[in-house]
């Protein structure tokens, strides 16, 4: 088998294609509209990538804020104690009275459980969070009040 030096010592390279044959291939040009089609596809591809990049962080941020709001609301329930929650509950429900402490405790416990479920559900979709509680970034207290208002309205 020939090695590199053998090929080097063969002298001038002997082409197989004639000039005419080579020229006939070199005259081939890309279709005139190909440039525009490529730029359009690149632009579409770029927009799709930007959509992916911005979509996920927005969703994640909304979910995180929803979760933090939920934690804040839980802390608020714990800090304010039964009377305020019971009072809020009483405003939304005619069946409870402010003197009915066991019922208020049960209601508060239900509230926390329900709100927990609601908060978990919120994490699954930022759209629902926005639809339910409005713009991301509301204080936990506002979120809780909104929730209680809606909960009362559902009863």
């Amino acid at each position: 088998m020939k090695n590199y030096n053998d090929y080097q010592n063969e002298g001038p390279e002997e082409h197989v294609l004639s000039e005419d044959q080579r020229d006939s291939l070199l005259t081939i040009k890309a279709p005139a509209d190909l440039r525009g089609r490529i730029q359009q596809r690149v632009a579409e591809s770029r927009n799709a990538v930007i959509g992916k990049r911005t979509g996920f962080p927005q969703l994640a941020a909304a979910g995180l804020l929803g979760f933090l709001s939920f934690l804040g609301a839980q802390a608020l329930v714990g800090q304010l104690g039964g009377p305020r929650v019971a009072s809020l509950e009483a405003n939304n429900s005619s069946t409870n009275s402010s003197t009915d402490q066991p019922a208020a405790d049960a209601s508060q416990s239900d509230l926390v459980r329900d709100y927990h479920l609601q908060g978990v559900a919120l994490l699954s979709t930022s759209d629902r969070y926005l639809d339910t509680f409005g713009p991301v970034g509301q204080s936990p207290e506002v979120v809780l009040a909104t929730y209680l208002h809606e909960r009362g309205g559902q009863k």
């Binding site: 291939l25 070199l26 040009k29 890309a30 440039r35 490529i38």
Partner: peptide
């Protein structure tokens, strides 16, 4: 593309 389009297509 202006520089390489024809070559790539060919």
């Amino acid at each position: 593309f202006d520089h390489f389009g024809d070559r790539v297509f060919r």
